[in-house]
Design a protein around this nucleic acid. Sequence first.
DNA 1: GGCTACTAATGAAGCCGATTCATTAGCGAA
DNA 2: TTCGCTAATGAATCGGCTTCATTAGTAGCC
Lengths: 233, 233
Amino acid sequence: MATRSTRKLVSRLSNDDRTADIMAAARAVISAKGYENTLLSDIARQAGVVEGTIYRYFANKRDLLVKVVEVWFGEQLAIDSHLESISGTQNKLRYIAWRTLDIIRREPVLARFMLMELRPDPNYRSTAFFEMNRRFTHEVLALCRDAAERGEFLNDVSPNMLRDMLHGCIEHRTWAFLRGEGDFDIDEVADGIARVIYRGMFAQQVATRSDIGMAIARLEELAARLERKLDGG
Amino acid sequence: MATRSTRKLVSRLSNDDRTADIMAAARAVISAKGYENTLLSDIARQAGVVEGTIYRYFANKRDLLVKVVEVWFGEQLAIDSHLESISGTQNKLRYIAWRTLDIIRREPVLARFMLMELRPDPNYRSTAFFEMNRRFTHEVLALCRDAAERGEFLNDVSPNMLRDMLHGCIEHRTWAFLRGEGDFDIDEVADGIARVIYRGMFAQQVATRSDIGMAIARLEELAARLERKLDGG
DNA sequence: GGCTACTAATGAAGCCGATTCATTAGCGAA
DNA sequence: TTCGCTAATGAATCGGCTTCATTAGTAGCC
């Protein structure tokens, strides 16, 4: 097809090198132009190859972008040992929310891709991404479950619901941020979420009728003793 | 271009009639095949017109589908007078959440369109859809604000945050439903959301065990003082 | 150092939708 | 009945992704 004279090949690299090149190019393009505006031809140009070459390494455009975002997301998850050093369930909740919001603030394009492309995928649950995300959100589940077992939290709302409230609220806020509305005060948001969930689930040690009954009994006992003294004196 | 012999025109209708035909066809196709699988040619065939005709009435495919969803969403908002008859802030919250979940359950494809196409739109805030959605979510805002003013709710988390928690959680659950996971128990979800938010914000005027303990300590102190007087006297 | 086999890289062609626009035909007004 | 307007047409275009027969680096062998 192509004439001999126009053909020029770039150097032949190992599979790994070429894959890395293309993914780096894709990452650069996607983060510069946003997901919907990313063309395969842009990626190819940036990587210094031709569009067809990409299909030797990736099944299709979406496959490429998913792999890029998986790596990206994995990097975010890696930095993650601070949680244990925080004490108190409410503080832990606040930190988890804050950290998630912070990732979103730093990498809005990534966040958008997650929300738009990965989560709606019908077989999301069998993707590598799901597994990573599961580990990520597992913290909230474990935290709430522990609190319930220790008696700190009530038992009447499932930890899954609480996790969804936390992440759902974060995502809802994220959309406003991604559209460029307002100033995205992540401290305020994280604090509000943690506060409402914690207070909403806290198994408050309120006084019961029997507590009050005991108090009355004690007062009656004291009064009786005084009375005896007065009578006797 | 076209030869005289092959050309056949459908009857010419008023603009409104033809617009309605196309929108009805679009709605049928999108709800049968899902948004990503909806082709303009499907819609045209269903409407009994040719693809090009659609461009006389709508700027492009997206414009058509947005208008379809706007009308649909408007219908949902119309049925909406039950809320006032419900008493109690928590019950109202539960009803609002339940009703939203119910709309989603009945029209999952359109719900998906809202979440995927309308909300991410950069000029979402200037769309008719935003205005409708504002009225829709305004109920939650008003409810929480009123409760705060009456002293039923605490003042330390903004009503906007609470609204986002409610809708965020609903949306998060919706994705799982749209992917066909689990059974989408909307009663449980609505109840959980309302419960956590209500309890989390309720300005609880109850006595705690420590309050009663302090009271008892104070009484014992008084009793001791009396006793000393009697003993000394 | 030349030859061969292997396969990475090429890029033109194919394909599949949305979108455009010159042409045609229905319809109401004069 | 004719005329003018414009709704409807559908072939052509366009803009992406994807395929695949062809070309050319490269490593291994003698």
